[in-house]
Design a protein around this nucleic acid. Structure first.
Length: 797
DNA sequence: TGAGCATAGTTTTTT
DNA sequence: ACTATGCTCA
């Protein structure tokens, strides 16, 4: 034995920990070592918050709260001591046994809960944890709010009256359900739309207001009373259908914990540490959930950036993060202000813009990165010209060695993608659009999911209705309404009624059709219960029995091939799911995964194409070059925000998010006039542009207004491939990647050419543009023209 | 029951 | 401009 003091051992331990996490900056390391008690990490854009989260979890699992602890580890043997010194001085591996020695109150992987908002973020977290901790990383609960809650509710939902295989309704299902309720309550959709009712309900659920409470709060307000009634009926119907909507997942999970001490105990004892990412986006219900789970251990760490709160319209309350310190006494606050992503210019611009907001914690990002280019503010004369400008910048950038995937175009609203898409197709620039029409929102996909859902849960009335006449089976609304009524009268499920349709007088006429449908469904249900039928086989059985694909040919006048492709795509998703989950597969499991999935999850960053998406979807992503089109008052900030200071702040945060996505170059573009909602309007440049200090900006504008001329603009005629290309870019998965062939440079500067109408001339410059080459040619007779090589039919001269 | 026409409303949407 | 929705009529 050696004779080092316990003080020295504590010091050694600190050195080991500093060494282990040496890659991080001081602030980050402080966050990693602040293990116990409430912790608020204010993490600016690009400040490495995921890294901090991952390392903090790793630290907790390996060393517990060793860094700050005064607990003296037992004496170290000489051997262990030298291992420690070797590690500190020479970076040799530290044996597990020594790690264990140095740790204080470490915890097991499954005692840690890390909650994110997106599947993508959860997946990334999980991946990085597994990279760092090996298989142990797998046991950490790292998942989204919704799937965490779903998991809890599958386990104990019975206590609230749900079965373990309840269905999760998406917005479309909810809407159908609400329409039903409106009908039953005789609420005219024109006076009170299902949309507004649902949004009121959603807000109620976000703030944990149950139907009874809502009714009370409504008082004598007529409108609110109607909504309260609809809310109540809607919940009853959901319960009957054994279904929950997205908000219910959170809300019910909270109720479950509040009402069942044993369940609460279970989770409070299980989770020693709770961490929440993107805390600025949480709503009240989510706050409740987190609070309940972390109450006992007190070890709650939230990470967020109040400046990036852009989901108020969905119920996120920025107050959660602003008041965290007062809600959780003795909170430690750590600011991560060093940015590793952007150039100084970009960061300074972002800082300058966000400074105009009053409601914020206050934080100034800085960076050691280089100053970089000035920010380009370009004024185009139309939205056409704006798209042209962007396409040209991309092409010239690619000609100089950038990849297409270095570029992102972020806009305020999805409709802005249309012109960009057209121009990009014309110029042969490969691109992908994220968002807009989503894969799982396509009609045919929703139909197939509905079939699977009904097989999984025949009580799922909304989805049963969706497919009962899809493909057409001559079962109309009237019949369905009858059956529903009978079912309600008998207290049975609609499916039961349909199955015995011949026994009910009102259904006599359509009974054969109903029975036939029920028989098909029964057959499919039997097949799904059969161990030997794989999900993929079941899926094909559905297509087979329902003749769904054939029905596409007859019922649709547009090309059904797209839809068939989508159906096949879903089949491959099923197969993928089966492969990934081995023997753990179940129909319910697949449906759960599907119901919680979104498009952004499928954003494949390895494909070489320009990516376009809304600023909202871009949160959390980064790109070397970012274009921000439509920076105009009325678009960004939007019309409705202009006279509302609170809304303006939200829009400004959105602008902040947009600017901070850029790593190296940032182009802000506005157009003097643009077509919007069918009419042309002239918008002032966005006020956010004026908020960027002039010295950071380099302004440019397109030449004076002229009708775009062939030769100066990109070719206007459509290529054959256009429709196909546009469609496949919109679709889904890696199969939709477009690779354009490298441009063939037929002509180079200095070549002498002759043109049919312009006569002889000399090529001044040749710049590749997608599939084509833009040539600048000095003609002897007509002066200098710009022409596309493929277009101009030039002859060598 | 389904086709065809008129009408309204179009911000964002991690789940 | 565009499209999703609802309503009417055959």
């Amino acid at each position: 034995m050696n004779n080092i003091t316990s003080e020295q051992i504590l010091e050694l331990r600190r050195q080991v920990l500093n060494k282990e996490f040496h890659k991080m900056n001081d602030r980050q390391r402080e966050a990693v070592f602040s293990v116990n008690g409430p912790l608020l990490i204010l993490a600016g854009a690009g400040s490495g918050k995921t890294t901090v989260l991952v390392n903090r979890i790793a630290n907790i699992i390996k060393y517990g709260n060793a860094y700050g602890s005064r607990t003296v580890p037992g004496a170290l043997s000489d051997e262990e001591l030298s291992a420690v010194r070797e590690y500190i001085d020479h970076d040799t591996a530290l044996p597990q046994q020594v790690v264990d020695r140095l740790s204080v109150d470490p915890c097991l992987p499954w005692q840690i809960l890390a909650i994110t908002f997106t599947n993508k973020a959860a997946g990334e977290l999980k991946n990085r944890l597994i990279n760092m901790l090996g298989e142990a990383g797998n046991d950490i609960w790292a998942s989204t709010f919704h799937s965490t809650c779903a998991r809890m509710l599958r386990r104990d939902g019975e206590k609230l009256g749900y079965s373990s295989h309840f269905t999760i309704y998406d917005t479309d299902d909810s809407r159908r359900m609400m329409k039903e309720c409106q009908k039953a309550l005789d609420i005219d959709d024109k006076l009170l739309s299902c949309k507004s009712i649902l949004s009121a309900i959603s807000h109620a659920k976000d703030s944990m207001v149950l139907p009874e409470e809502f009714m009370k709060q409504a008082g004598s307000d007529n409108r609110l009373c109607l909504i309260a009634k609809a809310y109540k009926l809607y919940q009853t119907r959901l319960r009957e259908a054994d279904a929950m909507d997205f908000d219910d997942l959170i809300c019910n999970a909270v109720l479950l914990l509040e009402k069942n001490q044993d369940v609460l105990d279970h989770y409070q004892n299980k989770f020693h540490y709770v961490m929440v990412d993107e805390y600025q986006d949480t709503n009240h219900a989510q706050y409740m959930l987190v609070k309940l789970l972390a109450q006992k251990s007190g070890n709650l760490c939230v990470v967020g950036d109040d400046d990036q709160s852009i989901y108020k319209f969905r119920g996120a309350t920025i107050e959660n993060i602003l008041s965290f310190e007062s809600t959780f006494p003795n909170t430690k606050v750590i600011r991560l202000e060093q940015n590793y992503r952007s150039t100084k210019n970009i960061l300074n611009a972002a800082n300058a813009v966000i400074e105009n907001n009053a409601q914020r914690k206050g934080k100034t990002l800085w960076t050691n990165n280089k100053t970089g280019e000035q920010i380009s503010v370009h004024t185009a004369f139309s939205e056409q010209d704006e798209a042209d400008f962007i396409a040209k910048k991309v092409l010239s950038g690619v000609a100089e060695g950038r990849k297409y995937s270095d570029y992102a175009i972020l806009y305020r609203m999805n409709s802005q993608s249309n012109i960009l898409e057209k121009i990009f197709v014309k110029s042969g620039i490969p691109y992908r659009i994220i968002g807009g029409q989503r894969f799982y929102e396509r009609k045919e996909i929703k139909d197939m999911i509905a079939y699977l859902s009904v097989i999984n849960n025949p009580n799922d009335e909304i989805r049963l209705r969706r497919i009962i006449n899809q493909p057409k089976r001559s079962i109309g609304d009237k019949t369905v309404a009858q059956a529903t009524e009978i079912a309600a009268g008998l207290g049975e499920s609609v499916f039961e009624v349909i199955r015995h349709a011949d026994q009910y007088e009102p259904l006599k006429r359509t009974a054969p059709k109903l029975l036939q449908f029920a028989a098909i469904m029964q057959e499919l249900i039997d097949a799904s219960n059969d161990e030997n039928t794989s999900l993929n086989e079941l899926y094909h059985l559905i297509l087979d029995k329902t003749d769904y694909i054939a029905s596409l040919y007859t019922s649709e006048n547009d090309d059904p091939q797209d839809r068939i492709d989508n159906i096949n795509e879903l089949a491959s998703n099923l197969i993928k799911y089966e492969e990934e989950n081995g023997k753990e597969t179940s129909l319910a499991g697949f449906l759960e995964e599907v119901s919680l999935i979104t498009d952004i999850d499928n954003f494949d960053e390895h494909s070489d194409s320009v990516v376009m998406m809304t600023i909202h979807s871009a949160k959390g992503l980064e790109f070397p070059v970012v274009f921000l089109p439509g920076f105009e008052d009325g678009i960004f900030p939007g019309m409705q925000a202009i006279y509302n200071p609170v809304e303006i702040e939200e829009e400004r945060r959105l602008a902040y998010v947009a600017i901070t996505r850029a790593k190296e170059e940032l182009y802000i573009v506005n157009a003097e006039s643009r077509m919007i909602f069918g009419s042309t309007s002239r918008n002032k440049p966005s006020r956010f542009i004026e908020e960027i200090p002039e010295e950071l900006v380099e302004r440019s504008r397109s030449r004076e207004w002229k009708k775009p001329q062939p030769g100066t603009s990109l070719p206007t005629s459509a290529f054959e491939a256009r429709a196909i290309t546009m469609e496949s870019a919109r679709s889904f998965g890696p199969s939709s990647l477009i690779h354009s062939e490298p441009p063939v440079a037929q002509f180079k500067a200095g070549d002498c050419v002759s043109h049919k109408t312009f006569g002889k001339g000399m090529v001044l410059s040749a710049s590749p543009m997608g599939n084509d080459t833009l040539l600048e040619i000095a003609f002897d007779k007509v002066g200098t023209k710009k022409l596309m090589a493929n277009f101009a039919r030039l002859q060598r001269a």
